[in-house]
């Protein structure tokens, strides 16, 4: 078992553990911190797959900007474990059973799929590097890229309109 395999399993276990702790933490701030751990683990997976641009963007945009936004909102609202709304025990069990059943059905459907020879190649391949991605982004995907800026502008206007005290 090489170093790549060890890293893969370690990062997978870290991501799953973090995801479970996001869901079961009573304190919302702990949930945000565990979600940052999940994003770090997923960035590690991107680096293992040699998608370095996406790894850095994931860290900057998700673990940086979006999670800071979440933490900011939590601290603005002064939420903690005491103010956490409690749900009926049976509804919680039903939610876990529903999620588990979805996992069971999807795994059962894909377990016997013939994908043994399909490898997600690690540590090589040039397509994840910023040079190649940038060339394709600004040649073939210029129009979606520009539309994205309009989307951000409309999101900004929308946030200001929604957040304004009237």
């Amino acid at each position: 078992m090489g170093i790549t395999q060890i890293l893969f399993w370690g990062l997978s276990i870290l991501a799953l553990l973090g995801a479970i702790l996001v869901v079961i933490s009573k304190n919302p701030v702990h949930s945000v911190l565990w979600l940052i751990v999940v994003f770090m683990a997923i960035s590690g997976h991107y680096i293992l797959l040699n998608a370095q641009f996406l790894a850095i963007v994931n860290l900057i945009v998700y673990a940086g900007a979006i999670m800071v936004l979440f933490l900011f909102v939590f601290m603005l609202m002064n939420l903690n474990a005491d103010t956490e709304p409690q749900k009926n025990k049976w509804l919680k069990i039903a939610g876990v059973v529903a999620g588990g059943s979805l996992l069971l059905v999807l795994v059962a459907a894909l377990k016997h799929a013939d994908m043994k020879n399909q490898l997600a190649v690690m540590n090589k391949g040039e397509i994840g590097l910023i040079h190649n991605l940038g060339l394709v982004l600004f040649q073939d995907y210029v129009v979606p890229f520009e539309i994205t800026s309009v989307l951000f502008l409309s999101a900004m206007v929308g946030v200001v309109v929604i957040g304004k005290k009237d």
């Binding site: 799953l16 999940v38 749900k87 939610g95 876990v96 529903a98 999620g99 979805l102």
Partner: peptide, 16 residues
């Protein structure tokens, strides 16, 4: 799939 289903279970179980 496991991460996705944990997310689904979280959406269904939490109320915040």
């Amino acid at each position: 799939l496991a991460l996705f289903c944990i997310g689904v279970a979280g959406v269904l179980t939490r109320r915040n």
